[in-house]
Design a protein around this nucleic acid. Sequence first.
DNA 1: CTTGCCGGGCA
DNA 2: TGCCCGGCAAG
Length: 155
Amino acid sequence: MLTNSHAIVRHIRAWHLGPKTDKGEDYSDGEEEFYFIEIERNADDVIDHSSEEAISPPLTRTTSRRCRSFSDPSVPTQPPVSSSAQLHLDDNFIWPLRQAGGRGKAKRPLHQTVHTNTRKARGDGKKCRKVFGMENKQLWCTQCRWKKACAKFID
DNA sequence: CTTGCCGGGCA
DNA sequence: TGCCCGGCAAG
Ligand SMILES: [Zn+2]
């Protein structure tokens, strides 16, 4: 329940973090847009909390894919994609700015809360992987792509 | 099941 | 030196 809400908030936050102009801009070429729409749709479902349920469709739960519209069964997978939006799908949408402020050794409240000697208690881990997703591996940071210690979202 | 990373492999 | 995976630990 909360996880869902959190997820939504996370995305929304991100999408609203960059362009403070509130909806009325951004919109790339229809690649990340899915995400935004998808989430919103979900939120609606949550807040609605009414009607529908008995006639709930088969709901093709592919046991995965947090985003990416599940479109309709009439469409195979990945529509004609129009053209080749894989070599230039970037250079447009301003992905959620990383940790506000800007990387460069921010303040470190001198902490050393004995990590119980159990490898980083990865409580929060919004690294390239989770943030972008497997489908966008091309956007991950080099380190992440090589399954090494992420260099972008350092915590 | 997942994410995140070390260690190790290959050109 | 860049690139990637096996396998592990932690949720
Ligand atoms: Zn990364």
